[in-house]
Simulated scan of single mutants.
Amino acid sequence: MKYTVTDIHNMDSRFRAQFVNSLSGFKSAHLVGTQSNQQVHNVAIVNSVFHLGADPALLGMIMRPHTVRRDTLENIVETGVYTLNHINSEIIAAAHQTSARYDQELSEFNECGLTPYFSDTHNAPYVAQSRVKIGMALEEVVHLAVNQTNMVIGRIVEVILDDNAVLEDGFVDLQALDSVCIASLDGYYQPSLLARFEYAKPGVVPQKKR
């Protein structure tokens, strides 16, 4: 089956959102933890986090157009700090529920059955149930005129995870940590490692790592 630009444009809006969101493949699944200047804790699911650089250690994420109240983005801009928390199989229902719209004065942690956790060195709430917790400091918000979204660029300032999850070469064993991924808007998957390969060189047959 072939879909043209016209076909995609004429789709029902909810169908189109699911369809187009599926095309980019499996995406990372994170909960963004923030708090307002009034100390109200907020948590929201995102599937748009991406690696931007290792030195400095930067992660980006795309936030939807700021045409209505966006507590997560507003809190990040106000406080300059936030957290990214991997979703695991035990909290996928609670994580999905964070996509609901709650009143601004309510703690979405409480409403969704998640627990805020604060480290001694970061002023944004982590998700206690997450097995990979990443503390972020805001570097830049870039407005994308093409569709009015915002790219949030943050610097990693701390990482909290199990000691045995980091292998000798720095590889983080996400399968051992039960990190899940998302397809489209509401499909949750448990990825499994198929293979790791040695550094690729021209003219050399790819070699699997042992």
Rank of each mutant, 00 (worst) to 15 (best):
A94R: 10
A93W: 00
S130M: 10
Q190V: 12
V20C: 07
A165Y: 03
V46H: 01
P65Q: 01
K208T: 07
L174S: 08
Q38E: 15
D55F: 10
M136V: 11
H143Y: 03
H9K: 12
F109N: 01
A200D: 08
G113L: 08
N47P: 06
N164Q: 13
L185H: 11
R196H: 05
V159I: 15
G113K: 04
L73G: 01
G80Y: 06
P56T: 06
V132Y: 05
E198M: 14
L138M: 07
I160F: 06
V32H: 11
D55G: 10
V132K: 04
E158V: 09
N147A: 14
S184L: 01
I153M: 11
I182W: 05
G25R: 08
R131A: 06
L144P: 01
A17Q: 14
I156Q: 03
I160M: 12
Q207S: 12
G154I: 03
G154V: 03
Y199R: 13
G154Q: 01
L144I: 13
I156D: 02
Q175E: 15
N88H: 15
D162K: 13
K208S: 10
N110F: 12
D178V: 05
F19Y: 10
F197D: 10
Q104C: 00
V172M: 09
D163S: 11
R70G: 07
T4S: 15
S107I: 04
Q207R: 14
E74I: 10
N47S: 15
I76L: 07
T4C: 00
G113F: 08
L144G: 00
I91N: 03
R101Q: 14
I156W: 03
L84Q: 02
V146R: 08
S107V: 09
F19V: 02
L167H: 10
Q39K: 13
P206V: 12
T149E: 07
Q175M: 06
F19G: 00
G25T: 07
A95V: 12
K133C: 14
L144V: 11
G203V: 02
N21C: 14
E108W: 03
K208R: 15
I62T: 15
L174G: 14
V159S: 10
V152E: 01
F15N: 04
D162R: 13
F26K: 08
R131D: 11
T72H: 00
T115N: 12
